[in-house]
Write a protein that binds this DNA or RNA. Structure first.
Length: 673
DNA sequence: AGACCCGGTTTTTTT
DNA sequence: AACCGGGTCT
């Protein structure tokens, strides 16, 4: 690069002027917001920073979001173009929330910054610069299930399976491939470490991956990992297109940096490779995504990524009472490797967290229902209460009890709206309309029809491949093609219409709905519950002007959860939150219950086998406990049958079993509830 | 031959 | 509860 050469020829050394120093000279009175007064000193230091690279280590509840929000406002107040600020967050919900808060703080300019997840930013960027990258700008995005379906197709073809040996399932293969990309580990290593029983099948597994990669290339398909990989490669391609992109981005802010993986770290590096203006915020104690290739070491390695990285620690907790912090600190004390200091708060006192043992799982549910009603009597509304759990299915029993007691709730995590079979069915039609080469969707849609199984579907696909039939034109009468004999004419007419005719996406969805409804009713016994989801989808589609953007959004950020388990009471604005701990990230409640804290489930028996996974479970428990502001209830049933191990689990989680009585109060719930 | 049904097996966590 | 594989029915 020419710039680089010039620099080398210079005889003198460039010295960076630290932004801190500049900040001190800045006349604070020119700002609308009184930053110094509204922030604590370390928050202020982070907020006042302008140029340069910063690592903000911010413990749980220390006002991390607040800091980012104020920094955005201040950059804009300082005169920087909102569009030159890029805020990368973990979910789009988080990004929207920050922009909303910044707008309230300052003004509407704050909503004009660029924000989103790594994946959504990749999606937009790759489409915009598709030509320079050598991609088809209307590529489709594969979600996890789509990837697995393709892998399944490959797996069942080409004689990969011989019936004698057990062969990895589609989800397993998908996981292995994805983990390989996200960690940079070779497939061989992953198999040896985590799936030693598949070592004899290594060659076949590698072959499947090869075919999978080719398949994606050929059909303009990108899975989640590809989005990141293509973006990274693009950023380091040195092309004019990259320079054009980077010229428009002056400041990069990254939230939840502890949960990024090495590709995302490279992307951050790539984005700030010229400007060096980057601020990442995170907490190594809250790193809970290593299963996705995230490494808490990433945050430790950040200072190596850029020159003169300044590290700012924010340690005063504003969320929880001291007793809860003591409890959380105790859990984290047991960690093998730790970097952050102990959190402190000025909120002295508070009740001790309760550790509640119940006779069985149902008793646990009943206790929680009872306690929630009590809290509500005390004036704590349901929105201030949450029940958290390690795995989505832990809450099944509780959901039944809540329904019995008429307590409205919303569940987060677990089954996603978009992953429900009926929504995938509808999307299938739309995806064919958008990309007639989408074989997976064809397959799915064809199989919905009575009398069409894998073989007939394949015949239709063959005829499509040879263009004997096509959706570019309406099927004519008298045409003797396969679709007539199998009565698929109506399907082809529908697909022809939604593919060809110009109309708003919502009208297309409506047409699909009308066609699909009878099939849907036939396919699902519980179609009445599922119907709600279809209506919601119809509503969502009204917000879109193009089918492609609807489909892309559905693949990347389906923010809506399935309504199957939720009854009508949920339309009320007061509701209890049920959430996986992962989905509770960054949130807080007055009172928090953590359920199923029983050894063998949390930590799970599998994760207890390896130090790294066990440590991650510990951090997860830490994240869960630091969500609470005032009350924390940790509950466990003393009698849980574990099918896998064939034993009965009864001990509390090892993370809390040795806690002293000055840190938590033990309770026992007896039968006579 | 191919669609459909049934029963045994296996479950984190998410973009 | 969903998935896979095998067995049965049309």
């Amino acid at each position: 690069m020419s710039n680089y050469k010039q620099m080398n020829q210079k005889k003198y050394k460039l010295k960076r002027i630290y932004s801190q120093n500049i900040a001190k000279q800045v006349d604070e009175s020119k700002f609308v917001i009184n930053y110094q007064q509204e922030l604590n000193p370390s928050q202020y230091e982070a907020v006042a920073a302008t140029e340069g690279a910063y690592l903000i280590i911010a413990g749980a509840g220390t006002g991390k979001t607040r800091t980012l929000v104020y920094r955005v406002a201040r950059l804009i107040e300082s005169g920087y173009d909102p569009n030159s600020i890029l805020l990368l967050t973990f979910t789009r919900k988080a990004a929207n929330e920050m922009m909303r808060r910044a707008s309230l703080l300052l003004d509407d300019r704050c909503s004009k910054i660029r924000g989103g997840t790594f994946h959504s930013f990749a999606n937009i960027t790759l489409r915009k610069y598709a030509k320079a990258i050598g991609l088809n700008s209307s590529f489709s995005i594969l979600d996890q299930g789509d990837s697995a379906d393709i892998i399944n197709l490959i797996r069942s073809q080409n004689g990969f399976i011989d019936n004698k040996k057990r062969f990895p399932k589609k989800d397993t293969l998908n996981k292995i491939f994805s983990f390989s990309v996200n960690t940079g580990k070779r497939i061989e290593e992953i198999i040896e470490e985590d799936y030693p029983h598949f070592i004899p099948l290594l060659d076949k597994i590698l072959d499947i991956q090869k075919v999978y990669v080719q398949y994606k290339r050929k059909n303009d398909l990108l899975d989640y990992d590809d989005l990141l990989v293509y973006l990274r490669d693009f950023l380091f391609s040195g092309s004019a297109a990259v320079n054009a992109l980077l010229a428009t981005i002056k400041f990069i802010l990254v939230d939840e940096y502890q949960d990024t993986n090495h590709i995302q770290a490279k992307i951050v590096k790539g984005l700030a490779q010229f400007s060096g203006n980057v601020m990442v915020v995170g907490d190594d104690a809250q790193s809970i995504y290593s299963f996705r290739g995230a490494s808490f070491r990433n945050i430790m390695d950040f200072p190596k990524l850029f020159d003169n990285v300044q590290v700012i620690k924010i340690e005063e907790n504003y969320r929880s009472v001291q007793t809860i912090l003591d409890f959380a600190n105790h859990i984290y004390d047991g960690a093998i490797e730790k970097y952050t200091k102990v959190l402190y708060t000025r909120k002295k006192g508070g009740a001790l967290p309760y550790i509640v043992a119940t006779a069985n799982a149902n008793m646990q549910s009943k206790f929680i229902v009872e306690k929630i009603l009590e809290l509500r009597e005390e004036g704590i509304i349901l929105n201030d209460i949450a029940v958290l759990f390690r795995s989505s299915f832990f809450s099944f029993d509780l959901e039944i009890e809540l329904a019995k007691a008429n307590i409205p709730f919303q569940k987060f995590g677990g089954m996603k709206f978009i992953e429900t079979a009926h929504i995938k069915d509808v999307l299938g039609f739309l995806r064919i309309a958008s990309n007639p080469k989408d074989i997976i969707s064809w397959y799915r849609v064809l199989l919905l029809h009575e009398g069409i199984g894998p073989k007939s579907a394949q015949r239709v696909l063959d005829e499509l491949a040879t263009a004997r039939i096509t959706i570019e034109s309406t099927p004519r009468k008298g045409d003797k093609s396969f679709i007539h004999t199998k009565n698929l004419v109506d399907l082809f007419i529908l697909l022809y219409k939604i593919h060809t005719i110009k109309m708003p996406p919502t009208e297309k969805v409506q047409m699909v709905y009308d066609y699909y409804y009878p099939l849907f009713k036939e396919k699902y016994d519980d179609f009445n519950k599922r119907k709600k989801d279809l209506e919601i989808f119809l509503n969502i589609s009204e917000n879109y002007r193009s089918l492609d953007s609807l489909l892309a959004d559905m693949a990347i950020e389906p923010m809506i959860d399935s309504m199957i388990d939720i009854d009508a009471t949920d339309k009320e604005d007061e509701y209890l939150t049920l959430s996986t701990i992962h989905s509770a990230k960054g949130l807080e409640w007055h009172s928090v219950f953590i359920i199923h804290v029983i050894d063998g489930y949390f930590p799970s028996a599998r994760s207890a086998e390896k130090i790294e996974t066990l440590e991650e479970e510990r951090r997860l428990m830490y994240v869960a406990s630091t969500r609470a502001k005032q009350n924390l209830f940790v509950t466990y049933p003393m009698n849980m049958y574990d099918r896998e191990a064939g034993t009965t689990l009864s001990k509390p989680s090892r993370f809390i079993s040795d806690i002293s009585s000055d840190k938590a109060e033990g309770w026992l719930v007896e039968d006579d509830f």
